[in-house]
Amino acid sequence: MAATQVLQSEWTKIRSVRSTVWTLSLALVVTLALGALISIVSKASFDDMSTRDQVTFDPTYVSFAGMGLGQLAMIVFGVLVVSTEYSTGMIRTSLAAVPQRATFLFSKIAVASALAFAVGMVTSFGAFFLGQALLGDHRAQIGDPGVLRAVFGGGLYMGLIAMFSMGVAAMLRSPMLSLGILMPFFFLISNILGNVDATRKVGQYLPDQAGSKVMQVISPPDDTAPYGPWGGLGVMALWVAAALIGGCLVLRRRDA
């Protein structure tokens, strides 16, 4: 089967599975809603903040407060895109139609990633403009130094989260196992390692903590990361590459 036919086939699969469409929609809605809520609260409480907090207030990053829950939906999307065929047994039919396993996997990831990045960009720009409108006098402008980079980086971050999840799901081949590892990793282990002094130097190299730095315009006072915004995104990209390579190796060496 030609590469273009494989891509078209994967696009049809994604569109036909309602759960994948719903998870992307949820990522958009949750991120905008929570970001808007935190922006309203931040505006109302700004005058009560300490001088230090006012000086380091990052209105751009505040509007991305919903990214944490939004990435949850992106994780679910990435896992479902890859692992659903394993759970239903359709993987055997797919590999019979496309015996070149690397072509099959990366065609699936290419189509799903393009969709994830598109939704990620809409989500990031939407969260920014909505959040800034609600912040009033404390808002940032898209043309301010570092702001466009942060907003664009937010879209990249969302897409990379989905890609990382696809790679992990390709290695584990089970939606329950994949989600059972990814959810605690991002929402428990990463936070613990990043907030405990003894493990902070390790935590700052985890994909979500490194990647999220690209969304910051003003670094927090306790930031000790040895990389900048794009460097952090680069660290995240290395995690994604490792996960995808691992998924490809597992697919090529194991039976369906």
Rank of each mutant, 00 (worst) to 15 (best):
I109G: 01
M158A: 10
G89M: 02
A243R: 02
I38M: 08
G126S: 09
V79D: 01
D53W: 11
Y61P: 11
W11M: 10
V202G: 13
G246H: 03
R15P: 04
M163D: 04
S42T: 13
A114C: 11
S63G: 02
G68I: 10
D53G: 03
A3I: 03
G70W: 09
G194L: 14
Q71S: 11
A33L: 10
R15K: 07
G211N: 03
D255H: 06
A112W: 05
M74S: 12
M163L: 00
N195W: 06
G234D: 07
V217I: 12
G194H: 14
M171Q: 04
D223H: 15
P220H: 02
I142G: 01
G155C: 00
P59D: 12
A150Y: 03
S190Q: 15
S25M: 15
I91K: 11
F46K: 14
M49V: 13
V98H: 02
V202A: 11
V235R: 01
S25R: 08
V122R: 04
S19T: 06
Q141V: 08
T23G: 01
A150Q: 02
I91V: 08
E10Q: 00
A237D: 05
A162E: 03
G247Q: 00
K201Q: 15
L179E: 05
A97D: 04
I161Q: 05
I38H: 10
V81Y: 09
L105Y: 03
A65F: 05
A2P: 15
P99V: 08
A44K: 12
A33Q: 04
A169T: 06
L34K: 13
T123L: 04
G231L: 00
D222L: 07
G70M: 09
D53N: 13
G136H: 11
S174D: 10
G66S: 13
M236W: 09
V98N: 00
A3S: 00
V240E: 02
C248H: 07
L115C: 00
E10T: 05
D255L: 09
S25D: 11
S83L: 07
D222F: 13
S42Y: 12
L95W: 07
L193D: 06
G70S: 01
L233D: 08
V81H: 11
M158K: 09
A241D: 12
T224H: 11
I181S: 09
G231H: 07
L69Y: 15
I75K: 13
P221E: 04
